[in-house]
């Protein structure tokens, strides 16, 4: 090509860019096809490595050490000692069982309530006050758990709480919601349901938005019963989004700590002690970092197991439907 001739579309993308000056080599380097994608990904990769990968590897390593911040001794390699200690600790098993119960009741209630409310709000565009109602419905979700915890601690208060005031007004005696071991778990669970049901409403509305209108119209003309429509159309199309919501809520409920910290601190006794709270107390009260790291790894593996199970169930259902 003659000097000064215009570039043609046949030129390779890797062809040197005609530029001069000290930046020539640098811009040529940036323009290389094997470099540019990595450069674009670099910020998120660096973030991921610094804030996710390194701490996780650090945690994984620390789990094999006996390391207490109160002893003043340097970490000592102990192999699987911490893991054996955790597996032999009945307190951890009880807390873990309590956590599974919490996750089960919270996620099931939130999913059912969320779906019911989502279905109520579905196609309600002409309903007067719909936006205000939805804003009010979603507001608990945007509160920080500490604020929600404080808010509900005041509501549950046996002396000044509005709930007990109402109970007394009905002629019953006050209930110490957070101080009575028989009701504290349900009281905390109720707050979690209050906070996170809106999330499942949101997921349900998103799932419903993915349902093709024509199929619903066909079902209406074909006179299908509501449960047939729900099963054959709504759940069929919305199951991915709903399952994603359930998965996210499961993992999140499994990690619940801040709400418990603010409302009961695991008490009374250990009635509301969830495993994340156990982890916190062992790490930042007892300063047993090695043991806590090992427990954190176990919790991480359980979360991964949840995710893998959900993905497997979804794909298995899909495969089964395709094969049948």
């Amino acid at each position: 090509m003659e000097p000064g001739a215009p570039a043609t579309i046949n030129q390779s993308r890797d062809a040197p860019v005609a530029s001069t000056g000290p930046w020539e080599g640098f811009t040529r380097f940036l323009g290389r096809r094997d470099v540019l994608p990595f450069l674009l990904l670099a910020p998120v990769l660096i973030f991921f490595i610094v804030w996710n990968l390194i701490p996780t590897l650090w945690l994984l390593g620390l789990g094999f050490y006996r390391f207490s911040l109160t002893s003043g001794r340097p970490p000592r390699f102990a192999g699987l000692y911490n893991y054996r200690s955790i597996l032999n600790d009945s307190g951890v098993w009880i807390d873990l069982s309590r956590t599974f119960l919490f996750v089960f009741f919270a996620v099931v209630t939130e999913t059912l309530l969320g779906m019911a409310l989502g279905l109520l709000f579905w196609n309600s565009h002409r309903l007067p006050g719909r936006r205000i109602a939805l804003t009010m419905l979603f507001s608990p979700m945007v509160l920080t758990p500490v604020a929600a915890g404080t808010f509900w601690r005041l509501i549950y208060d046996p002396t000044f709480g509005v709930l007990n005031s109402a109970i007394r007004g009905l002629g019953f005696s006050s209930v110490d919601f957070l101080g009575d071991g028989r009701v504290a778990f349900a009281a905390v669970l109720g707050v979690d349901v209050w906070m996170w049901t809106p999330f499942m409403v949101l997921m349900t509305l998103a799932a419903l938005a993915s349902v093709p209108k024509a199929e619903l119209e066909a079902a209406e003309i074909d006179r299908l019963a509501w449960h047939q429509r729900l099963r054959l159309i709504v759940l069929h199309h919305g199951k991915f989004i709903l399952m994603l919501g359930i998965l996210l809520r499961t993992i999140d409920a499994f990690k619940t700590m801040d709400l418990i910290y603010d409302m009961t601190y695991g008490g009374p006794g250990s009635a509301t002690q969830l495993v994340a709270m156990t982890l916190y107390r062992r790490a930042f009260e007892a300063f047993n970092m090695g043991w806590s790291s090992a427990l954190a790894v176990i919790l991480l593996l359980i979360s991964i197991a949840f995710t893998a199970t959900f993905i497997f169930v979804l794909h298995w259902r899909e495969r089964r439907e395709a094969e049948s």
Binding site: A214, E215, E217, A218, E220, R223, L232
Partner: peptide
Amino acid sequence: LAPRRRDVAMVFQYPVMYRTCS
């Protein structure tokens, strides 16, 4: 009247199926 009360059947432009069924 709602469609279900009219005693009509309809075939749509795109084949509308109940996809989990045979």
